[in-house]
Amino acid sequence: MHNKEQVSSLQIAFMVMLFEIGSTPLFLLGGKAKQDSWLAMCVGSLAGLLLLLLLLWIQEHSLGLDLIGILRFNFGATAGSVVGWIYCLYFAYESMRNVRDLGELTSLTLLQTTPMSITMLVFVLIALYAIWKGTAVLFRLPEVLLPMLLFFYGLLVLLLGIMGSIDFRRLTPVFEGGLRPILDAALPEIVSFPFGQMLVFLMLWSLWEKPGVPVKNTISAYIAISIFLIFMNALNVAVLGPTVAGISQLPFLKTVRTLSNLQFVERLDILVTIQLFVGLLIKMMIFYFCAVKGISGLTGKPLKWWVFPVGAVIYGTSFVERDYTQHIAIGLGPSLKIDPVFQIAVPLLLAVSILLRSRFKRTPS
């Protein structure tokens, strides 16, 4: 592998954090658990951590291979390739969902009169350019964007605190309905989105500049960002109350709009929109990159061959859903049902295959 294609531990840690933020603060995840939604986030992130440990274990036992290589090695060339192609479609589909999110968010908040087809094309072209320029460019983005993003989130939380908008009593009573609603809200939904999406790093860890797996960096980044997401979830409820936060289309936007009586700051929602753009764009780029990288691995053709065709497919399919309501209904319905197959079932099969392989290796013939 060329030197220029390798990425550092810090870049991987930052990418984990930015990828996990994505569009997550946009929604109130676990809203079914009402004021306990932040506890549902805790459960989801813990389950996601177990899944992450499984993924890291798989990567440690498949050094130098990405997901496609791991599938072909464990399931055989034919079956592995078939599953690999399905994963490439899955990554492209996830990328398309983020493109649509970006388009809808733009027309909802910033550019109400600009056709969504134009804004979505711009986002796809930005991603296409970054992927065309190569891994180094893609992984340099979080180094610039993450500190800026966290600074803005911190600023907004500080303003909410100063204005006295935050009332943590809205998070009580805790465990009102017992443990059941919390578990129902967390599994499988919060595990699937965002925590289970860490699966894409099976395509990325092999780019690390050192031999082995960046375990410490990945886990530290995952834990740090989980705490941040749990806090943001609790914050939305503490500002809006569980009922309003639960029914809002974009609760965090509504939370920030409570600052509208600040005399010296106008249109803070622009700031929120930009934060969400950054998160969504990175997520969309990573899924797009994984689809391209996967197809490149399966066909043996260079990465650049596939950047345009995959981009065209992602852009074209982003118009399939009729409107935002249908987009969200599919995203929180059928999509979440198939996610566990890709995020949990296949990795478990891979782990079993790796264990059986090492068992047979050890037994003397």
Rank of each mutant, 00 (worst) to 15 (best):
L67C: 05
L156G: 03
S23G: 09
G154F: 03
R140M: 11
N217S: 15
P147I: 11
A329Q: 04
S226W: 02
M198P: 04
L250D: 05
K304A: 09
Q6A: 09
Q197S: 13
I182F: 02
A127T: 12
L253Y: 13
L110W: 10
G246M: 06
Y288T: 11
L280P: 04
P251R: 07
T317Q: 09
L28S: 03
Q343G: 04
M17N: 06
R357S: 13
V144F: 15
L125K: 02
R169W: 06
V200Q: 00
V265G: 06
K337M: 12
I118R: 03
E209Q: 14
P188Y: 00
A238R: 00
G331H: 01
E266N: 10
Y153M: 12
Y93E: 03
I131R: 04
A186N: 01
L303A: 04
L199Y: 04
L71Y: 00
G84E: 02
T114N: 09
G44Q: 02
D167M: 01
A329L: 01
S260T: 12
Y288L: 14
V122H: 09
I227P: 02
I274R: 05
P147M: 06
L18H: 09
L158P: 00
Y222G: 00
L160N: 03
L262T: 12
D36T: 10
L204V: 15
S220F: 10
S37V: 08
L202G: 00
G154A: 08
F27S: 05
G69Y: 00
G31D: 05
L303D: 02
S8N: 12
S95Y: 09
W208M: 10
Q59H: 04
L108S: 11
Q343H: 07
I21M: 07
V256W: 14
L229Y: 03
L110A: 11
L332F: 15
F19L: 13
V43I: 13
D339F: 11
T363Y: 06
W306R: 02
I12R: 01
G76Q: 09
Q197R: 05
P188N: 00
E60W: 02
T243I: 07
